[in-house]
Design a protein around this nucleic acid. Structure first.
Length: 687
DNA sequence: GTAGGGTTAG
């Protein structure tokens, strides 16, 4: 006679046999959160979710590893009646691999009170969490319980221990582990070599590398990366050349190494030679160009990458945004932002900051502010990008307000934050406040002022016309901060105020520091010319010519429907040069009606062919504005980026054009933004 | 049924 309970159990087992394989198969075919929810509903209805820990565990696994939804994984986990070790492991690993692994440790602690026992999988996951949290103490406790269980000498957990200790900077404990464990495999060796490398012990790493019984590609890659991080690119390349087999990461590592030490051409050469490129290869090369001052090349690479159907990932997007920022390529930047949103990419503080920076550098402060306010977690970098963005875009008050909010939020400012703060003070003409913030840097925040900070202060004094004080400040700057940037800032202020005497002194010092600074000669000669001292101006130009010096050529770019157009001073190479010419004439006649007379003082003397090109009426920014007027839709803003400071006459012209043509002009020069509207500029005529 | 070591990223 069969008992009722036994009959029920048999029936349940039969149901399981029927459902279980089907359920697992369906989970394997499951592709989205929606399908997951449907499947769970079905499993709840037929009782499988509660009766079958295996099926429930599979579901949890899919939720964590398949769709990466930790939030819902918790819900599933809490609903499960039987949580086996697998279920705990899955949730722990999900957190260990996430950007905030804290809950992994708490889950592990909670696990100790329950029925499921940790196994060697559990320990590798928990140790991973300790490693990324740099939680040495917790790591050691975990090690202790592993020893009790006897799993600490198994190869997987032992490797995890070595990695954990070296991530926590306790390389000696890692080495002790390495020496203790008998079951070593190639990963054990690699973990130890990498540990030495990340702790900066290159020689120990190399010694161990040489002793390795078998070296895998990963071992070589780790060494190459260690050398590039340590700045020894030659040693890295030697290893690279010695390798019999390389994988894509080998190439990527070497390319990144060249990029890090500024050897862009070498990086590019390897990039061209490598047999297969993955998304990291592209991102590496794109970021190398973006950071190495070749942003245009970065965007071209992006196009090629898309042509090969490689989708930009998070890192590529961050680099691309930085390239767009450099170029002031707003349309491109917006498109990438759109890509981020439509692909639901994780906008963390890094990507958020990249977006803020891109918008701010494109003069689109509303876009920057929108991203900033929507950022769930803001760190010092995001605050700094926003404060600096507001400051250079002529919103000094808002920048200072934001800085106060940042301090109130308990975020500690860094040196870059103060560049933004001081810049804001300078543009507001608040010299005393600038001084106070400057003094607070070391007194309150423990940050030593650098050249940039002195520069802002010089700028503030210069704007206020207090050039003598500014000169004293430059003289008094400590050696570490003093340098050509400071003198150049002072010279710029003298140029704006037409102060010959201080300007001469500044130019003298500047050419002492850098004999080949053509820019200093030009600036000083312009100061002379503006004062009518033609002989001095001419003498300086001749001197410059005889020494073969050139001023860095003026270059302006403008984005028209996604493509950037670049203009040099006197440039006639643009395909629409004739139309541009006509537009320049049109600008001239409309401005004349407004009473404009060109100030051509910089070019009234000693004109040779080259200088004719520099005639103010053909400055690069003016060509770009003319092109913007004819190529951009009526009423839309004209956005120009110039590599040097905007010239005074072009500044006047831009102001007048903004009213005569009813167009906003946003011109980014080397220092700040000029938002021209209705005949005036956000910089209040000082820059 | 689950794992580890090496590459990009403000």
């Amino acid at each position: 006679m069969v008992s009722a309970a036994a009959a029920a159990a048999t029936a349940a087992a039969a149901r399981l046999r029927f459902h279980h394989p089907r359920c697992v198969a369906m989970l394997q075919a499951c592709g989205s959160m929606v399908e997951l929810l449907q499947l769970q509903a079905q499993m709840l209805r037929n009782g499988l979710f509660f009766d079958d820990p295996f099926a429930a565990g599979k579901m949890l696994e899919f939720c964590v590893r398949g769709v990466g939804n930790l939030h819902y994984a918790w819900k599933l986990f809490e609903q499960m009646t039987t949580r086996d070790t697998f279920a705990w492991n899955t949730l722990i690993q999900g957190h260990a691999a996430s950007p905030s692994p804290g809950p992994a440790l708490r889950l592990f602690a909670r696990m100790a009170g329950g029925a499921a026992r940790p196994n060697s999988y559990t320990y590798t996951f928990v140790l991973k969490a300790c490693a990324s949290l740099r939680a040495t103490e917790e790591g050691e406790q975990v090690h202790g319980s592993m020893t009790k269980l006897g799993v600490d000498l198994e190869v997987f957990p032992a490797n995890a221990l070595i990695s954990m200790y070296s991530a926590c900077g306790r390389i000696e404990l890692g080495r002790r582990m390495f020496d203790t464990c008998a079951a070593k495999d190639v990963v054990t060796w690699n973990a130890m070599v990498s540990g030495y490398l990340s702790c900066g012990f290159l020689d120990c790493a190399r010694k161990l590398f040489e002793e390795m019984p078998e070296k895998g590609i990963v071992s070589w890659n780790a060494m190459i990366n260690g050398y590039t991080a340590g700045g020894d690119i030659a040693a890295a390349r030697d290893l690279f050349d010695l390798m019999h087999q390389r994988d894509t990461e080998t190439w990527n590592t070497m390319i990144a190494g060249y990029a890090k030490c500024g050897r862009l051409d070498a990086a590019r050469e390897l990039f061209e030679r490598m047999p297969t490129r993955n998304v990291v290869s592209w991102s590496t090369m794109i970021s190398a160009c973006a950071q190495g001052g070749r942003p245009r090349e970065a965007l071209v690479l992006f196009e090629q990458m898309q042509g090969q159907a490689v989708r930009p990932n998070w890192a590529a997007v961050v680099s691309l945004l930085s390239a767009c920022g450099c170029l002031g390529a707003l349309d491109q930047g917006r498109r990438i932002h759109w890509h981020v949103e439509s692909n639901k990419m994780r906008v963390d503080s890094i990507l958020g900051t990249a977006l803020i920076d891109m918008y701010a550098k494109c003069g689109c402060i509303d876009g920057a502010a929108e991203v900033f306010s929507s950022l769930p977690c803001k760190d010092v970098f995001s605050w700094t990008a926003m404060i600096g963005g507001l400051a250079v875009n002529g919103h000094g008050e808002r920048a200072l307000e934001l800085f106060r909010r940042m301090l109130a939020d308990g975020v500690r400012p860094n040196a870059v934050t103060f560049v933004g703060v001081l810049c804001a003070c300078s543009h507001l003409g608040r010299v005393a406040l600038a001084r106070r913030y400057f003094d607070s840097m070391s007194a309150v925040h423990g940050i030593k002022p650098q050249a940039e900070h002195y520069g802002c202060l010089v700028d503030a004094l210069g704007r206020a016309g207090r050039l003598a004080e500014a000169a004293t400040l430059v003289e008094a700057a400590p050696a570490a901060a003093a340098g050509r940037v400071l003198w150049a800032t002072l010279l710029g202020a003298c140029w704006i105020h037409g102060d010959v005497e201080t300007g001469e002194a500044a130019a003298d010092r500047l050419t002492e520091l850098d004999h080949d600074d053509g820019g200093a000669y030009v600036l000083l000669s312009n100061i002379y010319a503006a004062k009518g001292r033609w002989d001095d101006a001419r003498r300086l130009r001749a001197d410059m010519r005889s020494r073969g010096l050139h001023k860095c050529p003026g270059r302006s770019s403008i984005e028209v429907s996604g493509a950037t157009h670049e203009f040099y001073a006197g440039d006639r190479s643009h395909p629409r040069a004739e139309e541009i010419e006509r537009m320049l004439e049109e600008m001239g006649s409309r401005l004349k009606l407004l009473g404009y007379a060109p100030n051509t003082s910089p070019v009234l003397f000693d004109i040779d062919e080259e200088e004719k090109e520099e005639a103010v009426s053909r400055h690069s920014e003016r060509l770009a504005i003319a092109f913007g007027l004819l190529a951009n839709p009526k009423g839309s803003p004209i956005r120009v980026v110039k590599n040097l400071r905007v010239c005074g006459d072009c500044h006047t012209v831009a102001k007048l054009v903004s009213s005569a043509f009813a167009r906003d002009i946003i011109l980014r020069d080397r220092n700040i933004f000029h938002h021209f509207r209705d005949g005036s500029c956000s910089c209040k005529d000082y820059w």
